[in-house]
Nucleic acid binder design. Structure first.
Length: 943
RNA sequence: GCAUAGGUAGCCGAGCCAGGUCAAAGGCGCAGGGUUUAGGACCCUGUCUCGUAGGAGUUCGCAGGUUCGAAUCCUGCCCUGUGCACCA
């Protein structure tokens, strides 16, 4: 029968769905509850998603065959702005968005209309991509429990969760920087941004230099350079204003005044200050009390920070060049009334030492780069290099008081906070680059009142650490990551101004953001399908209190909640949570926090499995660039089993993998071959269990494969497991067939196939189920995961097969080296006395002395005295490499009989007559091969 | 910079944690042979260098070290991927 993936796959998929095969209910069995991060249906499903969901499916299928009740549920995450943003872009008819939807995700013109509401958009991708994709991939999901995070019942659950956290004091209000469009007067998200999508928030330190009765705040990212300031720069062509900022009189650029008012400052602009009145003036450094001059500089961007910068020429290549240029530009400076001698008197001040540089590092690096002008494009690179160097290895000079002798890295923040306390410093947010909104408006940093989850709360943190202590982190090296993340987490802003999802219960202007509404939902799966029959309005906080905290938690518990509690208790805790490794430092850690706080220790997650990234043909996947392979396409081209097997066997789940179509092709060919061979086996006539030696050998190998596959799957090692059961077993079978040209019994290979299909079924469920039913007549679902059968362990037979294999390979080697036509090959097994030597060595724990003294007492052995000495060395070297439990077995091997029985095999393999002799004194032995023979190393003579 | 994963023969990729059985699995590619020519087929042999005897030599990012012995352990260095948040 021809292997046609699609017909087999459709048959089984339909059968599983209509039978509800994977609908999981509480039972007397042990429970396994496995979850994986629910997908975000803002686009199509590609093979990267396929792998994410195939990995937990393997585990689910494996545990099911081990006799457990396994719950593997699925839902859809639609919270937040990505879908809303995508819909906006569609409605605005943005060409790129239309192209992605139509050309890459295959949305038809007719369907486009359905996508014009956020939930319409989400449901399109859920229905047309994710659910069908998952079903086509054969994921063993209980679909009754499906929901979206925008469902009203789910919102009730989130409402309960946040009310509970808030009642426990784990939320707080505070200010937070957001991207704010000054045109639309609204916060914006990354998707709303036209230019500067990668811009980050940066906190500038403002140093309050004074001039007359005003403050001119100098913006800097390097507050520790305050003692190296020689002058200040403002842009003569920009507009500066005097403004009252939080009660202080500040002189700042016009733009800066607007920024401050966005950043929750109280700003009143009093008047414009012409730049001429500032340039040439002296201002006072609040730390050193030095007076420094204000110079004009057109490179100063008044739209960045305060529009006034301080100059530290000794340590800033920019400033060094700018100062030099100013000194050279005598006429220009004179026009501003700045005298030459004032310029000349400006000397760089070195504030730190850094290895490999002289007193003025900026000068050194400018010289080594050969930079002479501020227009030089390599100035940026020089600056970057020096800043890095100084930050990590710059040591502050002696005049830094308590900070002297310390590195910039350890003192920058200390210095900043010390003077912030003293109100000599201040701060403001700024972007790392210009940001423009899609509406064309300027985007600025605004600070906004927001709600935070207090992940830095000490007692909460401690509970989270306790969860990690008992967590099975896969791979093990991730465990430390959780500790470090918990250590490093601060407050997390958990609401947004808009987007899909659940409103903050006590302030419905805000929506709980996606990483915050996905922290406890695994528990929701356990009862989601039952909730649908309960009116939404009954799902109040008391209901969930009763459900999750028990009947005693509320005065009059809802009996329905108490009933559901049983199912929750059956499934919980989560055995394994699967997710991608980039979610470790947020989602997965949040997940631990919320479980730590809201649930008892017995309900804490048992383990987390973190998955690696996927590449496509060696490059990152990207929907917008069209560099993706959709699941539908992959399944149609290769078949679902091939897609799964490739994704699961080419790398361990936590390792990065690379989808290469030529490699996937190879897998398809291999499955094709496997299908054909399985058919050959299935069509063999039934025989009774009358086993040959080789059958025992094969079954012994099967035992080892079962062992390895089982152990590996317990640790999610899908690669090791699939390699063992597919490739290693395939190798054994190949040897078996090679050795066994005249098969008499089919029992062994049918048994191997039966076990193999069960073990392969987590990886290639369709093909395995089909073949298993053809082989046994029984459904695979009812089968039991194989366990090694001790009666088939045949270590002796395995050693014997190894010897045959080694001898064959030695003969090949000899033949290759001689490289001429041969007429004879003779094999000599060693004389009996050599086996006596072997036995004596083994019986005396490989002790040479004892062995010698025993053997030399024997007349028959004494005559071989010299040879015994010589051979013992070689023999001992061999024996010492053997596992100790093997040694006694070695004694019982009859090499002559073994090779004698394998003679037809050797002759078939080598295509010529082979002679087998036992070493004897009167034997023809042209080059002493017989006399050199040793146990397990027979002599080979060829001519 | 910090953290983390890695750097193995033409390519992909095991081995490294628990040092010797490692010239180093397997796959792909390539070469030779067989078999079948219905097959995207299958089987065998070979694929660092040298070698008319199952061997020797030089290899596992670079440089050292520990050891009788290192792809494996230690130290330093170079290079690559990823993360460093308020975004799912």
């Amino acid at each position: 029968m021809e292997y046609q993936p699609s017909s087999i796959e459709n048959k089984w998929k339909d059968r599983w769905l209509s039978n509800g095969t994977y609908e999981a209910n509480p039972s007397d069995n042990e429970s396994t509850f496995i979850t994986v991060a629910y997908p975000y249906p803002s686009g199509g499903m590609h093979i990267g998603h396929a792998r994410t969901y195939a990995v937990p499916d393997v585990y689910a299928r494996y545990r099911r065959l081990c006799g457990e009740s396994v719950l593997f549920p699925m839902a859809w995450h639609v919270t937040g702005t990505p879908i809303v943003g995508a819909v906006e872009r569609l409605k605005n008819k943005e060409p790129e968005q239309l192209s992605v939807l139509q050309n890459i995700f295959g949305v038809s013109d007719k369907e486009l209309d359905e996508l014009k509401t956020p939930m319409g958009f989400a449901h399109h991708f859920i229905d047309k991509h994710y659910r069908v994709g998952m079903q086509n991939l054969g994921l063993s999901i209980d679909w009754r429990r499906e929901f979206t995070t925008n469902d009203e019942r789910y919102s009730k659950f989130i409402t309960w969760q946040y009310n509970t956290l808030n009642n426990r004091g784990l939320l707080e209000k505070g200010l937070h920087p957001v991207k704010f469009c000054t045109n639309e007067k609204n916060p914006v998200t990354t998707h709303d941004i036209l230019r500067g999508e990668n811009a980050e928030f940066q906190e500038y330190t403002l140093i309050k230099f004074t001039w007359q009765d005003s403050i001119i705040p100098m913006a800097t990212l390097r507050p520790e350079t305050i003692r190296g300031v020689t002058n200040a720069f403002i842009n003569p062509k920009s507009t500066y204003v005097e403004a009252i900022v939080d009660g202080e009189r500040w002189i700042i650029s016009q733009e800066a005044a607007n920024k401050f008012s966005l950043q929750a400052r109280d700003v009143t602009i009093e008047r414009e200050v012409p730049t001429e009145t500032l340039i040439g003036e002296f201002i006072q450094n609040p730390i050193t009390e030095d007076s420094v001059i204000i110079l004009p500089a057109t490179f100063v961007d008044s739209d960045n920070a305060t529009g006034a910068v301080m100059s530290v020429p000794a340590h800033s290549p920019d400033d060094w060049i700018a100062l030099e240029e100013a000194k050279r530009d005598v006429d220009q400076m004179a026009a501003y009334g700045i005298e030459q001698k004032k310029l000349d008197s400006i000397m760089p001040i070195s504030i730190l030492t850094v290895d490999g540089f002289g007193e003025f590092p900026a000068q050194d690096i400018v010289n080594s780069f050969g930079i002479t002008s501020s227009n030089d494009s390599s100035l940026k690179q020089a600056t970057q290099e020096l800043y890095n160097k100084e930050f990590h290895s710059g040591i502050l000079r002696e005049f830094y008081g308590d900070y002297s002798g310390k590195s910039v890295e350890e003192t920058r923040d200390q210095i900043k906070y010390e003077y912030l306390e003293l109100n000599i410093f201040d701060t403001m947010y700024e972007f790392t680059e210009d940001v423009i909104c899609r509406c064309g408006g300027n985007v600025e940093v605004a600070t906004q009142e927001t709600w935070f989850l207090r992940y830095n709360d000490e007692s909460w943190r401690k509970k989270a650490l306790n969860v990690v202590d008992q967590l099975d982190a896969i791979p093990p090296n991730t465990k430390n990551e959780y500790y470090r993340t918990i250590d490093w987490l601060k407050e997390w802003p958990c609401i947004r101004n808009y987007g899909l999802g659940t409103r903050l219960p006590w302030d419905s202007d805000y929506v709980i953001e996606p990483l915050s509404d996905s922290t406890l939902y695994m528990s929701y799966y356990t009862i989601s399908h039952h909730l649908n029959s309960i009116p939404v309005e009954d799902l109040d906080d008391a209901f969930f209190d009763a459900l999750f905290f028990g009947a005693d938690a509320v005065p009059s518990p809802d009996p329905r909640a108490i009933e559901l509690r049983q199912e929750w208790e059956y499934w919980y805790p989560v055995n394994y949570r699967c997710s991608a490794n980039d979610l470790l430092s947020n989602h997965l850690t949040f997940f631990l926090y919320h479980h730590a706080e809201l649930f008892e220790e017995s309900q804490w997650p048992y383990g987390i499995m973190v998955m690696g990234m996927g590449l496509l043909e060696g490059e990152k996947m990207s929907s917008s660039k069209g560099h993706v392979v959709l699941v539908e396409e992959a399944v149609t081209t290769y078949g679902s089993d091939t897609v799964r097997f490739f994704l699961l066997s080419s790398a361990e789940p936590w390792q990065d993998y690379d989808w290469r179509s030529d490699q996937v092709d190879v897998i398809r060919t291999q499955l094709f071959r496997f299908w054909n061979r399985s058919f050959d086996t299935i069509s063999l006539p039934e025989t009774d269990q009358n086993l040959s030696k080789l059958d025992h050998w094969l079954l012994s190998k099967l035992n080892q494969v079962i062992e390895k596959t089982t152990t590996s799957l317990n640790h999610f090692e899908t690669r090791t497991a699939s390699q063992a059961v597919f490739y290693e077993l395939e190798d054994h079978l190949r040897w078996y067939h090679r050795r066994n040209s005249s098969s008499q019994s089919s029992w062994a290979i049918k048994e191997v196939l039966r076990s193999r299909l069960i073990m392969l079924s987590p990886f290639m469920p369709f093909l395995s189920n089909e073949l298993h039913e053809l082989l046994t007549g029984e459904p695979l679902d009812a089968a039991k995961w194989p366990s090694p059968s001790s009666k088939f362990n045949s270590p002796l037979t395995e050693i014997e097969e190894d010897l045959i294999r080694t001898l064959l390979s030695d003969i090949h080697e000899v033949r290759n080296v001689i490289n001429k036509d041969l007429s004879t090959i003779r094999i000599y097994t060693p004389a009996a006395w050599k086996y006596r030597l072997l036995e004596t060595l083994i019986d005396n724990n490989l002790d040479m002395g004892t062995t010698m003294s025993i053997l030399m007492k024997d007349e028959d052995m004494r005559k071989f005295g010299n040879e015994i000495k010589r051979f013992s060395t070689t023999l001992l070297a061999y024996l010492r490499q053997q596992p100790t439990d093997r040694l006694s077995l070695l004694k019982s091997i009859k090499e002559f009989d073994l090779y004698s029985s394998a003679m037809p095999f050797f002759e078939k393999e080598l295509g010529m007559k082979i002679e087998l002799h036992e070493e004897a004194e009167d034997l023809l032995d042209p080059s002493g091969k017989a006399s050199q023979s040793l146990p397990f190393r027979p002599g080979i003579y060829a001519e």
